[in-house]
């Protein structure tokens, strides 16, 4: 149990609860026995499906019943159906899980069922709607582990439907994700989940574009902008982000400016400092720089972090900011290591 306040009931309240529980237990157990009997007899029909709905409403964690529900769907509900019928069934199932997720946003079983249903035939699922749905859920709880996981599942499903040679569409999906992730970071700089997603997207986009025809992709992005008069701003953002990947040095410089901006916005927030450690010390980045460029970046950051610590000391009766101290030590160590091996 997480986050439930402890209460010590009075004797009377306890008795009243037990009285109520008696009724609930009776209903629950008889429904449960009923469904498990149907399951054991391999009954796959509408009545059985409806009973699983009822039982899962009472207890969404009962994964055995979710399994049975999927058996019913496979062996009866989805069997020999027209495309239109399939779409309707899938959308009903998604609606059912959405009602449940509103009550239990952290229940693995519900998210799992949704993933299963959408994977049943990835070609007929409406992924754009899913993306909108999960964005709404992340608006409510921007750190929901399940939500972000689900979001990456949607993206990889969309990618799996794209022709392998169609690099443009692949890149566009991830440029959109990068913009979404930036939006989440700008909204709340301490959203570690968004920083994490950024780390994945940066590497992924870089790898996708390693052998790409930049000019061609850029032209298609420009065409998209013309076709999409209403959405010029967002496409401009994709284009700008895309251009960064043509030369990773520019990207790193901007990343460093972004980080400096972030630590001066909130010097206590750990997300930014952890991300900074990665940008400063990961081979992925420094491999793309000459030794001089790398040392320049390190020195620039060192200066800023030390400057920030002075400001922090002024604000906090001479107390150092521990993140500044830790990062200063790290940067000095990196500078030492890289100056030695000239």
């Amino acid at each position: 149990m997480h986050g439930i306040k402890r209460t010590h009931l009075s004797k009377d309240a306890k008795l009243r609860k037990l009285e109520k529980d008696k009724v609930k237990i009776k209903t629950y157990r008889s429904l449960q026995d009923d469904v498990l009997d149907l399951k054991d007899s391999l009954v796959f029909d509408q009545m059985a499906l409806d009973k699983t709905t009822k039982l899962l409403d009472l207890n969404p964690e009962f994964y055995t019943i979710w399994n049975y529900r999927r058996d019913i769907l496979i062996n009866y509900v989805l069997k020999d159906k027209s495309l239109e019928d399939l779409k309707k069934i899938i959308s009903d199932e998604l609606l059912f899980t959405m009602t449940q997720l509103k009550k239990f946003p952290k229940c693995y079983c519900i998210w799992n069922h949704r993933v299963w249903m959408l994977s049943y035939d990835k070609k007929i699922s409406n992924w754009d709607i899913e993306l909108m749905t999960v964005s709404k859920m992340l608006d409510l709880d921007s750190r929901n582990f399940h939500g972000w996981h689900y979001r990456r599942f949607i993206i990889s499903s969309m990618e799996s439907l794209i022709d392998k040679d169609d690099l443009y569409s692949l890149v566009l999906i991830n440029l959109k994700e990068l913009s979404y992730t930036s939006k989440m970071i700008n909204r709340n700089i301490s959203n570690y989940s968004a920083w994490h997603n950024r780390s994945k997207l940066v590497v992924k986009l870089f790898e996708q574009l390693l052998n790409a025809d930049y000019t061609n992709i850029l032209q298609r992005l420009e065409q998209e902008k013309i076709q999409n008069n209403n959405n010029n701003n967002i496409i401009d953002e994709y284009i700008n982000n895309f251009k960064l990947f043509e030369n990773l040095k520019n990207f790193i410089n901007l990343e460093i400016d972004l980080l400096i901006n972030a630590i001066f916005t909130d010097a206590e927030d750990s997300s930014v400092w952890v991300y900074m450690r990665w940008v400063l010390s990961s081979k992925f980045f420094y491999d793309k720089l000459s030794k001089d460029e790398y040392l320049q970046n390190l020195n620039k950051m060192l200066e800023k972090v030390e400057e920030l610590n002075e400001l922090e000391k002024d604000d906090n009766n001479g107390q150092n900011n521990p993140w500044c101290i830790k990062t200063t030590t790290l940067i000095k160590e990196l500078i030492r290591k890289n100056s030695n091996t000239l």
């Binding site: 972000w148 996981h149 990456r152 994490h196 997603n197 952890v274």
Partner: peptide
């Protein structure tokens, strides 16, 4: 494995 040295629930998942 992730940028922070941690591990997630699957490839791409946030460290936990």
């Amino acid at each position: 494995q992730n940028f922070d040295g941690g591990f997630g629930n699957c490839p791409g998942g946030e460290s936990h």
